[in-house]
Amino acid sequence: MSRFFLLLSLSPLVGCVNSRTQWVEVTVTTELIAPEGLSAPVYGEWNHTWSGEGELRVPLLPFEDFAAEGPGLVTTTLLVPLDGVEGLTLYAWMDLDGDGLHCAPGVTDEPAGLGEALPFPATEADVTLSLDAPCLGAEALWDGG
């Protein structure tokens, strides 16, 4: 009987890992294109293009902040999960008045843009973002993927 108890106690030890997740470290080169003559800090967020499954599948789930000193090339390194999410999309806007808010009341001209980083998943990706849509949110710029 004691042998039975020994086997009983050892059997669950097979498979001691609680969870195993896969990630990719992506170096993204972002080209921020602003309307001619405009230069100001750019803020935004990195999104999973799609996340969830079935009826809970949703687009544009933010997971990391984005910041740049202005238009031009920006290199960012991101750690992105591969389980349950697809794609990598950047939403950004230009802070013309320097208040840290996108289109606060009375402000109607801060341009925004949305772009998908490709290829994904990969350790290197590129995205070109045209900041040409004043005061639009990510959902308004989303074309359905």
Partner: peptide, 12 residues
Amino acid sequence: VLLTDVQEIQTA
């Protein structure tokens, strides 16, 4: 319970 979580990360 001892919980061991493993992260497999693809890097360059």
